[in-house]
Each structure stands twice: as C-alpha cells, then as structure tokens.
C-alpha cells in the first residue's frame, strides 16, 4: 500500500507549514482535556467515596410500640415498595437494651437502675449501596416517618445532604467542562485545518488539476485532526496523571485524602477519553474540509 506513505508525507508537510498554530491547537486541546478529566476524576472518586460511605449508612425508624410478626411483614412490604433495600432488621426494646449494654462494655453499670424496656423498639433499614440511595435518602426518610407507629427517623442527615449538594455541583462542573472540551477542540481544530487549507490553497488547486483523488487531498487533513486529538488528549491525560501523582504524594499520610481511596481512571475510561478527543478533533477537521475544500 503506497497510499499511506503519501498521506503521512503530506500530513508532515502540513504540520511543518503551520507549526505555530498547530502547537497552539495542541495546547488548547490538551488543556481542555485536562480540565474536563480533572473534574471528571474528582467526580468519579467522589462517587466511589459515596458508595463506600453508603456501606455504613442505615436508617433507624423508632417506633411507639413493639411490632408483632404479622405487622412486620406488612411494614417490610411497604418499605420495599418504596425503595430497594439490602436488609430490614426489627429491634425489640430488649434487643436495644442488650446492644446498649454491650456497647457500654465496662460502663454497663450505669444501666443497673434502668428498666430493660426503656428504649423504644425500632426498625433498622440498610439501603442498597449506591449513590442513588444517597441522593434519594431524604425522600426515603420522609416516607418512612409516615409508616404506622413511626415516631422518628434517624440517619446521618447532615453529611448525606451536604454530600448530595456537593455531588450535584460537581456534576454540573463536569458537564460544563465537557461542553468546553467539545467546543474548544472542535472549534480550534476546525480553525487550524481552515488555516492549512488557506496556506495550501494554491497547491490543493494544482493537485486537483493533476487528478489527485479526494482521499489524497482530504486524507492528510483528516489525519492532521486525528493526530491533534491523539496527541492533545494524551498530553492532557499525562498532565493529569502527573498532577494526580503529585497530589497523592504530597498529601499522603493522615488527612482528608485518606477518607477515601483516591485513584486514577481505569484503563477503559482513559481509552474512552482518548477516543473522544480523537473523534472530536477529527470532527473539527471534517467540518472545515466539508465547508472550505472544493474537490
């Protein structure tokens, strides 16, 4: 196949002729990928942290009275009708007392004068461990309080709500940076290819007269966009990895980062970001070819 060496040769010539703009485009693409992947990395880590924190999440519904087994089944059905849960545990007054005593361990003497039925019975609900649970837990809690005999519902309201708000905010930032990535890459690459077309206008016109095929003329321009995407996205991801490694090294030890296991993208996600960069840049290239190249 003698086709590829010619396409590569033409592409190399294009890159050399407009190298200044090419470097600017490469930096813009890299920066866009870096910004997007930075926020996306934080978002994915927050999701993971949310899932982990969700492991310890449970809702406790304090009841007025003990629940008889028949009633337990009814309550279970009403709870699972609203939301999927991992487990539902009914805790009687005595069980609650025994747990407390157990928790107090050596200080259990303080319970000596207390009646073993002074604690209210309760239902412990362990929701499914996913982020959806965290974001819908308030509604779930509002529902649980309407159950017959429910007195109070308790869970880590404050942190769950804060976590939910933070996550929503982060999701918006990720979407905005994704928009920035799409616009900047497509626009910049399209602009660069347009510049190449103007720089090589005379040559392309001559090639047309010499019988150059569309592939011969368009191939190098498409390849130019593709290379911009590949190199720009690689550079952006590499920068992010270096930044990530530096942060991990700098803030290792006891601290806020140890709250969750801060990790880099898995290979599949890295490849997806890389492919997205390539596709977007090729698209930018294609737009200019379609718009400005007459073949």
């Amino acid at each position: 196949m003698r086709f590829f060496p010619y396409i590569l040769k033409q592409t190399g010539r294009n890159l050399r002729k407009t190298w200044g703009t090419q470097v600017m485009t490469l930096l813009t693409v890299s920066l866009s990928v870096l910004i997007f992947s930075f926020f996306f990395l934080i978002h994915t880590n927050i999701l993971k942290a949310g899932a982990r924190l969700g492991d310890e999440l449970r809702l406790i519904v304090y009841l007025d009275d003990e629940v008889v087994p028949a009633m337990q089944e009814q309550l279970k059905k009403r709870i699972t009708d609203f939301n999927e849960v991992e487990n539902i545990v009914f805790v009687s007054r005595q069980e609650a007392f025994a747990r407390l005593a157990n928790n107090l361990d050596q200080d259990r003497d303080v319970l000596q004068d207390m009646s073993p039925t002074f604690l209210p019975p309760s239902i412990e609900i362990f929701p499914k461990k996913n982020l959806k649970t965290l974001t819908t837990i308030k509604r779930f809690s509002d529902y649980l309080i309407t159950l017959p005999g429910a007195q109070k519902v308790q869970y880590g309201q404050e942190w769950v709500e804060r976590f939910g708000y933070f996550n929503s905010l982060l999701r918006i930032v990720v979407l905005l940076s994704a928009g920035l990535l799409v616009i900047s890459t497509v626009f910049m690459v399209s602009y660069t290819i347009r510049l190449t077309l103007f720089t090589r206008h005379e040559e392309l016109e001559l090639l047309r007269l010499l019988g150059a095929t569309n592939t011969y003329i368009q191939g190098p321009l498409l390849l130019e966009g593709l290379l911009q995407g590949l190199m720009g996205a690689s550079l952006g991801l590499l920068s992010l990895f270096l930044l990530f490694s530096w942060i991990k090294l700098r803030f290792s030890g006891p601290g806020f980062l140890n709250l969750f296991d801060f990790s880099f993208f898995p290979p599949a996600t890295t490849c997806t970001i890389l492919m997205t960069g390539i596709i977007l840049c090729s698209l930018g290239s294609l737009i200019s070819i379609r718009k400005f190249l007459r073949v």
């Binding site: 007269l209 019988g211 095929t213 569309n214």
Partner: peptide
C-alpha cells in the same frame, strides 16, 4: 463524474 474526472486528469499532462 468527479471520480472519473480525477482518474482522467492523471492521464492528461498540461
């Protein structure tokens, strides 16, 4: 057709 013209032009020297 454009494709045929491209091939034809390769065989016409001007």
């Amino acid at each position: 057709k454009p494709v045929v013209l491209q091939r034809l032009r390769q065989k016409i020297g001007v």
